[in-house]
Design a binder for these strands. Sequence first.
DNA 1: TCTTGTTCTTGGTCGGACCATTTGGTAGGA
DNA 2: TCCTACCAAATGGTCCGACCAAGAACAAGA
Lengths: 269, 269
Amino acid sequence: MQTLGRRLALGGKQLAAKNRPRPRSEILADELRKQILAANYRPGDRLPPERQLAQRLGVGRSTVREAFKKLEQLRLVEIRHGGGATVRRLEDASLDIVPMLVRSEGKVSLPMVEQLFEARRVLIIAGTRLAAERAGPEELAAIRRVLWRLDDGGISDLDYFRALDELFRILCAASHNLVLHMARNALQSMFSPERRARLRPRLRPPADLIAPIARRLERALVEGDIEGAVAAITAILTVQENRIFDFIRSGAAEQPAPSPDEEVVARTH
Amino acid sequence: MQTLGRRLALGGKQLAAKNRPRPRSEILADELRKQILAANYRPGDRLPPERQLAQRLGVGRSTVREAFKKLEQLRLVEIRHGGGATVRRLEDASLDIVPMLVRSEGKVSLPMVEQLFEARRVLIIAGTRLAAERAGPEELAAIRRVLWRLDDGGISDLDYFRALDELFRILCAASHNLVLHMARNALQSMFSPERRARLRPRLRPPADLIAPIARRLERALVEGDIEGAVAAITAILTVQENRIFDFIRSGAAEQPAPSPDEEVVARTH
DNA sequence: TCTTGTTCTTGGTCGGACCATTTGGTAGGA
DNA sequence: TCCTACCAAATGGTCCGACCAAGAACAAGA
C-alpha cells in the first residue's frame, strides 16, 4: 500500500520517460481489479471508503473515485449512495474482464483460454453459418480477398495473423448480426496480431496446412454450401487453437510484465 | 441543451421525491450515448471539451468527466490526454450497450431484438450442449428443480418468467464455461422478469405448450441425450421468442418512459 | 518544404467544500 | 422487552478552482 502509493506517485514521471503515461486512476483500478479477481475481496465484501483509500494512498479522492467507477462499470462492484462499494459475483461481471481473467500478472491461464476459445468458436461458427446464408456480393468478395491472403504462403507472420483475425471479423460482420459481431469482438482483444507475430515460430501453422482449408472455405462460400463452410472454419479454428494450446502448455506463454513493479494494495478490512 | 441543463439541475430533487436519485453524470452519459447511437455524432467526430460542456450545461467538470469516462468504458468514445473525446465505431463498442440498442426512448427495435435473440440462442444452445455433457449430479438436480417449476401450471407469471431465466442461466452455468456464462448474462439484461410479468397475457405461452417440452428436456438430460436436450431447449427458445416477436409486432411493446422529459443535448460542432 | 521549438488547448489530478442518502445507534413509548 | 421514531455519523454525489502534463496547432528557422 505504501508501495502502491509510491508507484502511483511515480506513475506520471516513470512512464513519461518512454511509455504511455498510465493515469493513476487506471493503475489503482487495475490494482483493485487484481485484488478482486484474486479473491482477496469476496462477493459481498465492502471496499474501503473513497476518502480513506485516498488518504492512505496519498492520492486525491477524485482519483480513487474514477477507479471505483471503472470497477463499477466492469460490474465487479456495486456502488450505492451512502452505502459503499460492495464486490459482486464474478459471473455477473462484464464480458470485458475476460481478457484480464485470461492473462494476469503476465501468466496465461490455460483453463480460461480453453473456455475463451470454446466460446469464441461457438460465435464464429454461428457467424460463418449466417454469413454463408446472408453475405452480399461485395461482402463475399471481401471475404475471398482475405482468404487469398491466407492462401499466399509468402505472407509475413504479422500479416498472416492479421488476415486470420480479419477473416473471423469479416465473417461475423457478414452475418448481419451486430450482437454476434460485438460479442466476438469482445473476446478477440487478447493475443493481438503483433503479440502473436512476435511468438511466430510456435503459433503459425505451416502454410500447407492452412492454405487448402482456406481454398475449401472459399469454394463452400461461393457455392452456398453452408455446412461445408462451417466445416472449413471449424478446421481453421481447430488448427489455430491447438497451436496455441501447445504453446501455452509448453510454458512459453509467460511474458515479463511491461512494468516490473507489481506490488499490491494490502487487504484492508 | 438549456433543457438538459434544467433536467440535470432537477436531477437530484425531482427524483429524490420518490424515484431513485439518478446521478447527473448518468443522465448526461445517457444523453450523450443516445446522441451517439442516433448518429448525431459519427465515428471520428470529437465531443466538446469537458470544460465547455460543463459550463454550457451548468454542471461541474467532474460530472461531465464521469459521463465521459462512462462512454469511454462502453468503448463508444476514445479519450486521449491532450486530444479530446472522439467517437468510435459502433461495432467496436462493449456488449453492454446492446440493451440500449434494443430499447431506446421507450421504443423497442424489432431488428435488434431479432439479432439479440439469434445471438442468445447460439449461446444458450451451446451452453445446453456442454451442460448435457458436463453437468455434475448436484447441477443436474438444480436444473431438474427449475424444470419442475416450469412444469407446474399453477405457478404465477412472475415466477414463471423467473424460472425461465433461471433455466437459461443455470444451463450455461453448468456448461462449466465462465465466458459463455458471462456472455449470456450480458445479453439477458433486458426484459426483466418483472417487466415481462407486467405484460403477462401476451408473453406467457400456455402451460400445456411449455410443460411437455420441459419434461422432454429433463428426460434428455437425465439420459445423457445431448441432441435431445438441444432440441428441447431449442423448442423452448422458439416458443418464447415467437411470443415476444408477435408482441412487439403488435405495437404493444412501447412503454411510456419513466421520466417523460426527453430533451436532448443540441448538436455542438 | 521539412524540421524544430513554442504556445495553446485539453485531459489528469488535487484538495476542499457542501449536499443527499444510507446506516446504525439511541431515546422514547407501548 | 420490544418496537418505533428520530438523530448523528459515515459515505457517496456534485461542485469549484487550481495546477500539471500530454497532445495539437502554429510559428520560426534550416
